[in-house]
Amino acid sequence: MYTQKVMDHFMNPRNVGEIENADGVGEVGNARCGDIMKMFLKIDNGIITDVKFKTFGCGAAIATSSMATELIKGKSIDDALKLTNKAVVEALEGLPPAKIHCSVLAEQAIKTALADYYRKKGIDPEPIVGRIIDCEGCHE
């Protein structure tokens, strides 16, 4: 049911862990749905120099978290904000239809972490990051 790429990122997830004193932390999903993603960002001069994640969820949830961190590591905030769930799915060479919501969760986790980064700096994140879709929304 999963592509080889998904299984690779599931079994050898990249960037697992936490960052102490992270510049931005974002958690999305809830235990009720069975998926929770937490992203930690280190940001220097508008560049994401390090990213780590922790995920409770299915194979697709872990693989999309892993792939999403790979896709934004070393990139600018602007590039990270442009990352869509579709790009994550493409990079994984596809996901079963029932698992697309996991890729949405990964995109939202990054945006939530960036919103936290701006909030810590005293900047209203909404004009920059946009509205974060909550878990219930992504399941609809």
Binding site: P13, V16, E27, I36, K38, K54, T55, F56
Partner: peptide, 8 residues
């Protein structure tokens, strides 16, 4: 569990 945010 080691990679689970609700286990931390």
């Amino acid at each position: 569990r080691a990679m689970s945010p609700i286990w931390a």
